[in-house]
Design a protein around this nucleic acid. Structure first.
Lengths: 349, 349
DNA sequence: TTGAAAGCGCTACCAG
DNA sequence: CTGGTAGCGCTTTCAA
């Protein structure tokens, strides 16, 4: 090998190389490329520097830049468990929206999952290692004391879909009115026996709230939701099918079922089909989320429409404000939801 | 505010603080915490250092560490477009698997999307900024010259699902035998008129290969796939439904349809339903991927099973080998696929 | 065994 | 307008 640098040896070009190529000092390179006005540089010099950087394919070493600036221009996206990622199509939508907004502002997105089991504060390491400037937290457990500590520490963080700690910044879906309206309409259509297949086992705020909304709306009509009529799903279609089988066995009189989300609804539909219950003739099924596929199933899924993209966008924008040191006008955004009536509901049999 | 550091002011503790707390030098702290054997430190001292670090919640500043070590312990996951993320449930599964493997080895995962439009080499900036040590590329366009340049540069990268550049490291699905076996069985069941709703418009390697496999298998039986019998989907259920509507209109004699993936199949099922074609009585539908929901639909979806998790795991492991400077025994892994016969296929009507 | 010092690549602050 | 210089926090080598 020759002594000189090979052109293909990318990844090793420093501002020093650019400075030498352009015949200026390293400081000048930094000033020109960062667009700073710390000094007045002639247009001619600026051009020369830019051209040299371009030709060498120079990009500032991000580690050095982070160390110097004390900011990483990276945010973390914290997901409770990677299994969640695998089954619930809601997350990727949200995720895509977050990435789009962040990238437009020059931020990178790092996936983090909550380290489990260790006695130590799992968020502290994340923050203390200074690898990220801010955090977006998806479905964090409602009463996690470490989460609360993180929020109170003032580290830029936005919660998605849960926890309404008074000091928190968050974006969540207010599905209650839509769910209650849906119940009203189904009762008007003659339904008296309702079932719920939850989004997750009890304890997840978003899941619990949805069940409560249905129960409350029913109560207003003098109807109740017995314990056999509430079966736990766990985000997936598989869990939805299993839960619906139980529901059908324990409460066969059910004629209308609310699923915790559209993926769970897929499994509910599967269980109805295998039990010979025709949807919507024999039983009505209502999803939640209005995922991209919902309108294109057969029967087209009646569901509670929430704008996942928008939720991601709003959360990302709020985090960006926090990172800019601004105070969001509305620290806790509630997005509305609407029932969309398609083909999976009908009058009571 | 008092002059001293507040306990809640996390994110500012350096090895200096730990050293002072433990009454040793910064070098000692580094040696103890990194488990290096550069020097023999007494067990008693080690313990003292560890305890101080623990109490202060010390985590080494990652930027400084990256700068010093020249490695970021971060890999990039490059996705062609974020819209893909939003509709295809295959990606999150893969994604989750990648994250699991990487995290187990102490790597972080950064989401990258291919910057579009700029004349400059989009991968070069990624590599040159030294923000990542390696790259996983999902569905990169087959003939992208920059991609080829990246591969040839020797930067650690693994391709997923496409491109078989001779020098590349890759993991892809070999669906051809399974698809051909499925055709054979359907032909034996009496089907003569086949249709295909593709995974994407022509040009994506994975999509083209699937169509070709079906056409070839059909040819072996003296059957052909007319142009009206091939309609383009675009990853989503919506596109699948639209394509299937066209197919049903232009080739109404069709009795068996291969969908480009399971999400597309959802839309195919939707189009069949709205056209009054009962699956599988009137028409058979075969998906691809065997996503987690496929078995739990009604009818349960017959599909070509590929192990998305495994694909992610293998790719991640291969990248890890590359990062360790090892040469993977098999640089281009082909994963097999199997038809799983469930409820959405049946004999020809 | 431990402490002091160098240096990773960058930016910012000076004096020229 | 430009060039030296300091220092971000860490690791590692070398001298004590």
């Amino acid at each position: 090998m020759l002594a000189g640098k090979k052109g293909s040896e990318v990844g090793k070009i420093t501002s020093h190389d650019v400075a030498r190529a352009a015949g200026v000092s390293r400081a000048t390179v930094s000033i020109v490329l960062s667009g700073s006005d710390a000094a007045v540089i002639s247009a001619e010099t600026r051009e020369r520097v830019r051209k040299a950087a371009q030709e060498l394919g120079y990009q500032p070493n991000s580690a050095a830049r982070m160390l110097k600036n004390g900011a990483t221009r990276t945010i973390g996206l914290l997901i409770s468990g990677s299994n969640l990622l695998k089954v619930d199509a809601f997350i990727p939508v949200l995720f895509g929206a977050v990435c789009d907004v962040m990238r437009a502002r020059g931020y990178h997105v790092l996936i983090e999952t909550r380290p489990e089991g260790t006695g130590a504060n799992p968020y502290r390491d994340l923050v203390q290692s200074q690898r990220i400037d801010g955090l977006l937290i998806l479905n964090g457990p409602s009463h996690d004391p470490y989460l609360i500590e993180l929020i109170e520490s003032g580290f830029p963080a936005v919660l998605l879909g849960n926890v309404r700690h008074p000091k928190s910044h968050s974006v969540h879906i207010r599905g209650r009115p839509a769910l209650m309206a849906a119940v009203d309409r189904l009762v008007a259509a003659g339904h008296r026996h309702f079932g719920v297949v939850t989004l997750s086992p009890l304890g997840l705020e978003a899941a619990d709230r949805r069940v409560q909304a249905v129960a409350d709306a029913l109560a207003a009509h003098g109807l109740t939701l017995g314990p056999q009529a509430i079966q736990s799903g766990n985000f997936s279609a598989e869990s939805g099918q299993a839960a619906m089988r139980r529901l059908l066995a324990e409460a066969p009189e059910t004629t209308a079922v609310f699923a915790g989300n559209d993926t769970v609804a897929l499994g509910v539909l599967g269980a109805c089909g295998e039990a010979g219950r025709i949807v919507p003739r024999d039983i009505s099924v209502i999803g939640f989320d209005d995922l991209p596929f919902a309108a294109h199933l057969w029967p087209p899924l009646t569901t509670i429409q929430v704008d996942a993209s928008r939720q991601g966008t709003e959360a990302a924008k709020m985090l960006l404000q926090l990172l800019d040191g601004e105070t969001p006008a509305v620290p806790q955004i509630a997005l509305t939801a609407e029932p969309v009536w398609r083909g999976s509901d009908g009058p009571a049999p």
